[in-house]
Design a protein around this nucleic acid. Sequence first.
DNA 1: CTGAAAGCGCTTACAG
DNA 2: CTGAAAGCGCTTACAG
Lengths: 363, 363
Amino acid sequence: MNSTKKVSMKDIAKELNISITTVSFVINGKSEQKGISLATSNKVRELIKKRGFNPNSAARMLRTGKSKTIGLIVEDIGNYFFGNIAKIIEVEANKNGYNVFYSSTENNDNTAVELINKMRNSSVDGYIITATQGIKDEILKLKKENIPFVLIDRLIPDVETNYVILDNYSGSYDLTTHLLDNGYSNIGFISIVSEMSMMTEREKGFSNALIDAQNNKLHSKTLKVGFSDSHQEMIASIQSFVLENPELDAIFFATNYLGVIGIEALQKCHLNIPSDIAIVSFDDNDLFRLLTPSITVAAQPIDEIATASINLLLKIINKELRPSHTTGEVIKPVIIVRNSSPKKSNTKSNRLAKSSHAVSIVD
Amino acid sequence: MNSTKKVSMKDIAKELNISITTVSFVINGKSEQKGISLATSNKVRELIKKRGFNPNSAARMLRTGKSKTIGLIVEDIGNYFFGNIAKIIEVEANKNGYNVFYSSTENNDNTAVELINKMRNSSVDGYIITATQGIKDEILKLKKENIPFVLIDRLIPDVETNYVILDNYSGSYDLTTHLLDNGYSNIGFISIVSEMSMMTEREKGFSNALIDAQNNKLHSKTLKVGFSDSHQEMIASIQSFVLENPELDAIFFATNYLGVIGIEALQKCHLNIPSDIAIVSFDDNDLFRLLTPSITVAAQPIDEIATASINLLLKIINKELRPSHTTGEVIKPVIIVRNSSPKKSNTKSNRLAKSSHAVSIVD
DNA sequence: CTGAAAGCGCTTACAG
DNA sequence: CTGAAAGCGCTTACAG
């Protein structure tokens, strides 16, 4: 029933009365190097276009052992950050002749391990991986077998690999300092329970900024919700945390989605941002600039992270790096000050006033 | 340097002193059917496990022409809607033993055609495609060659295919009716220049709702921005449109991203939503519920769309559907009424009042 | 019950 | 400047 039979190199060669070898050389850009005449090259190129010929990648893969495919393993492709990372990686990969297989781990160890193995025997040439907490062994295996990969967004403790990550510490430090500079002194830090480097670094950045301020009027309080808690559970935890700590005048949300959930929680508490409580969030979101008020964030330069990771991987695949060496890139986040964290007025906190049934002071 | 040489079927056969054929039969679960003795089968299975043998998928693909891979072509994987569509499709595909290649067209015809061809010669077994306007020929080609594919989100005019789309007409009709029911009578319709069915259907739904209302006090005005206009250009167009038509008391944004951009434009005009102007948007966004005010939308049931499309494709690939027949599924959108389009008060429009320098009436 | 052999569509060392 | 031929690792029709 298929009227259009797939055209192969053989067909091209036969129609032009030349050998398959010549066709192959032209296709692979070796016509110069192999001394194919320009006339022949052009004839081949024309016919290829005319017939819509495309080399069969299975055959090529079988022959060369290379698939020209890279595997991208992210936490959640539906998420703003990872979705855009994926898009840029794909464009960059395509430019270099690579396709991209992607998959989401949903931060589940088993899924992550399965994905790595499944991709392995579709022979990907390399991986870009957002690690989950428990895949250390799998990563070690890749390393031992010299399979090219780069870790993004987060590291595995005590494992030396190629990686591209954000400078979580300094982003968090700077965001906290911004809050302190604007006069906030009772800051709630809301994060998730996690041993991953990204989260521990953010926490460290936060506390060190407080310590370095050397001001004993400064106080903070921390809440950590479970990663697998439901949306609703997280909202509830945040609500009670905020309500039970009326002295808080600002909150630092340690991730983008905690920020989103947190805003929802504050709305439910009928707390006004920023007059009742200021907020900042780590990691920007498409709409944070449009919220009322717009949200101050430490933004990840998605472009930079994506480009750096695919380029690094490509270098490893092409053996432009000494395999014994490991290279890491640390990208600086950008603090975007918006309206959720203005300079604090010197009057008494509205929230404490409200909670003691006093009339709130407007200045 | 790779101590671990890849083991092949040949190695297994040689070590066991049997033929490759037998090994292949065992691997593919045909030992019964082909009458391989249980003893032999077991020996083979054991050795496979012991040697960690994995069939080379390139060879298998070359031989069988099947890749157990499906190609997913979306408009923009970084977008909330498509990112989540992709995620669900992937999970569903994996359940059925398929991998997913994905790519973004950025709504560019050339990119779309290239992607289809590139995937074609990585021998995907089928496609799920978000069409761009000018790929009719390519789609016709797929159809003629009996290559399994399903169109999602939008159709190609005059081409009969398998598809899963949203009921854009009724979503738009209902959303408009909601506006009319709440007393709005001068509605701006902001869309993009496009011949795609999804957009024309939305426009038709909008106008028909107005017509069906049979109220000659109803007016509307339409703005269409160019798809490839920059973010900034779109904002500017929307701003002048709104400013030049002060009689508008509500705006219908025909897509999610127009809604986002539109909100930004209205903020820049210092117009208050909904007191100055009400808005509704087609297609929900992660944060629309958190904006002030939250935005009324016609939401696409992402889960349903994704599941329906992958299941349909799988059926086609497995030839469970008569190839001569074409099946389409139309998913109903859900109107989510939020705060951007409340019942309109009967007083004169605030905007007209403002623009004539009168004192605005508060009730 | 099992095997020898063809062939999928490429790439590349070798020969001229 | 160009070609004939081997071989990548499988699957499967055919033969016994």
